[in-house]
Structure formats: structure tokens, C-alpha cells
Design a protein around this nucleic acid. Structure first.
Lengths: 184, 184
DNA sequence: AAATTCTTTAATACCAGGTACTAAAATAAA
DNA sequence: TTTATTTTAGTACCTGGTATTAAAGAATTT
């Protein structure tokens, strides 16, 4: 338990807390080999809040995001859902989804439908799309019905690979591979 | 402050907590118009943990996800970054990024490069891609250098629209519009 | 109406993980 | 050696609880 200088210790302390905000002062004191008072002083000097406040901040962080995602409207009608396996959703392209000039559906609606479906498959309270590899095959026009079919193709811990194919009648207009993360 | 029955109150209680896990027993007691003891009894009967445990759970939830994202390797070399505005990254396509048969780079590497860059632009600790609208213009071959340029094109609260264009020499091989969420 | 049972409230002792403050001891610098 | 800095100790107090015992109130049954 060699004791490096004050500034070094404080740097260590912030790094420890950055890596793991769940550490109590007591645990930090043990790790750093100093008294709990020193830890508290250091935290005060670095203006790092106490454990509970840190947790609250982290929790509020996710909560804000989750709420903002919840607000985002659900795109498409869910017509079949086998949680954890597959699902089907239908989107009828309405005027407000299209670009006025071309009467072509804005791509993000098509994407959003697929994304919503992909996320919905995951059997968890909150799921977020981490990355997605998608392609638009042809434009979709106002009035067309887009049928999206999705299934979970792989899973590794809390990561899911969901594949989605969207069709208008028999024509595939969109395909996507979504990497979705499950939270909680 | 009319008092509905016990089961009704308990249902209310769980719903309140589902909507806002940050409520203390005291606040719940006021909301429900009963004593704090009743709230605690109800929580116990519904096996809902105390505030601090709830926060910890939420915090651990996000933390798991953030860590899993952090683990995901950074794709591309960041060669220029103006935080909150724009950035440039270069990816040299190596053998392990390509499909053996075709020597074509796997699309997700191209996507990942753009996605990493998009997320890096955001001036916050943690940023997650919510949705993305992307297109691959032509295959990229082993040995080619992909230069991705990104800029923030819109912002609304914690949501950012980041546009990314990736080129090999003068040819655009990828374009993407990312909706990125800032956390905390 | 009286007895019984369920439900709610009260009261108290205790805990973790702190804050805020005062003071003394140890160490480093002059 | 003296002075200043740094570290440790100790105490009182806080929030948001747990755990337990007891009593008051309300609804049901007899």
C-alpha cells in the first residue's frame, strides 16, 4: 500500500469512480490505502458527489433517454408478435410521411417501422438500437402498404441481431440488420 | 383525497413507481393520501425495493449497456475532431474486415466507422445512436482507404442529427444520417 | 350489538452512507 | 526549528430507509 502523492491519488480516485461510480468512500479508502476522511476530502476537492447522487445522476441519465425514446411515436401497426422470436408490422404510407414533391415516403419512416419492430421483439423493458445496417431497395409511394417482418437471428448476452425485411406486395423495399441492446 | 381500496392503491402505487422510480415513500404517502407506513407495507407486499435499490438497478442497467458499447472496438482512425461540429476519420480496410470470397469489406465496418464518428461528435460522456438512415453506394475492397466526414446538421434537446459521408478517393461509397441521443 | 378479523397508523430502535465541522497528529517545506 | 500542508480522528446530524411491536379504526361475521 504505497502512497503516491495527493494529486496522483486524486487522479486515481476520479479514474476509479469513472470506471465504477458504484464505489463507496469506504471502498475507495481501502483501495487507495488512506482513511475515509481523506477520500471525502479528495472528493470534495474534485467536486465529485456522493455515491447516492452519482447513482441518481446515472439513473436520471438513462431515464431521460428512455423517455425521449418513448415519446417517439410507434411507426406501423403491430399485427403479430412472438416475443423473443419474430414479429410482423404493417405501415400504410400516408401523405404526411411523403415528400411533397415526389410523393415518395421519407426513408426514416420505413426505417422507423423496422426499427420499432426490431426493438419490440426483444423481451425486455427497454431496448435500444446500437447500430444498424440497412438498405433501401426502391422508393415507396403514398398509399402503399409496407409489411415488415423481423426475426432475431443471433443473441449474445444483452445484444441481439435482428433482421428485418420490408415488402410492398412481393417486392422487398427495405432490408435491415439491427444490433439491439437490452437494458435491465 | 378519497381513499380507494387497498388493491386499487397498490395498483396506483406500482404505476406511479413505474412512471417515476425516483419517488420516496414520503412522496408516495402524500400522493396516495395515506401514511408512510401504509406505503411501506404496500411496497413490501408488492415486493418493490426501496428508492436507493431502485436507483441502483436503473443505474446498473445503463451501466451494463454503456460498458458493452465501450467494449465495442472503435473503428477507424480519428484524424480530426471539432467537438459538437464535425470530424474526419480514416479506415484502411484490412483482410479481416473483408468477406473471404469476394474481398469486399463487410458493410458493418463501414457503418461502424461512420457510427463511431457520429457518436464521437457529440459533446457528452455517453451518446447512443437511436436510428440511422444509411446507404451503401458501392462495395469497398481490401486495401482501400475510407475517409468518413461527419457533421452535426441539426439539434433538438438531446437529439442530434449527424450526417456522414464516406469516400474512397473521390467516390462516395457510403452516406448516412444518424439520429444520436446524448446521455447525461 | 358484540366479537372477530383485516387494515392502517404510530412509535421506536437501528442501519448505510453520507455532510459539516472541529481538532489533533503526521509529514513536508522554509 | 518553525511553519505550512496534508492526513486522520471524532462527533453531531441527515435522508431514506428496515424491522418490530403495538395500538387504533373499519369492515365482517356471528
Amino acid at each position: 500500500m504505497t502512497r503516491p502523492g495527493k494529486s496522483k491519488r486524486q487522479e486515481l480516485l476520479s479514474r476509479y469512480l469513472e470506471g465504477n461510480p458504484f464505489l463507496t468512500d469506504d471502498e475507495l479508502a481501502h483501495i487507495l490505502g488512506v482513511s475515509i476522511q481523506t477520500v471525502r476530502l479528495d472528493r470534495w476537492r474534485l467536486s465529485i458527489p456522493e455515491l447516492r447522487e452519482r447513482l441518481k445522476e446515472v439513473a436520471q441519465g438513462i431515464y431521460g433517454q428512455v423517455k425521449s425514446l418513448e415519446k417517439d411515436e410507434w411507426i406501423g401497426k403491430l399485427i403479430d408478435l412472438e416475443l423473443g422470436r419474430s414479429g410482423v408490422s404493417i405501415l400504410e404510407v400516408s401523405e404526411e410521411m411523403t415528400l411533397k414533391r415526389t410523393r415518395v415516403a421519407r426513408g426514416d419512416y420505413i426505417f422507423a417501422q423496422a426499427n420499432c419492430l426490431a426493438v419490440a421483439l426483444i423481451d425486455t423493458k427497454v431496448a435500444l438500437t446500437g447500430t444498424a445496417r440497412i438498405s433501401f431497395r426502391r422508393p415507396v409511394y403514398c398509399g402503399e402498404k409496407v409489411v415488415a417482418r423481423a426475426f432475431i437471428s443471433r443473441r449474445k448476452e444483452n445484444k441481439y441481431v435482428v433482421r428485418v425485411a420490408s415488402k410492398v406486395q412481393d417486392e422487398t423495399i427495405f432490408q435491415g440488420k439491427f444490433l439491439v441492446f437490452a437494458i435491465a
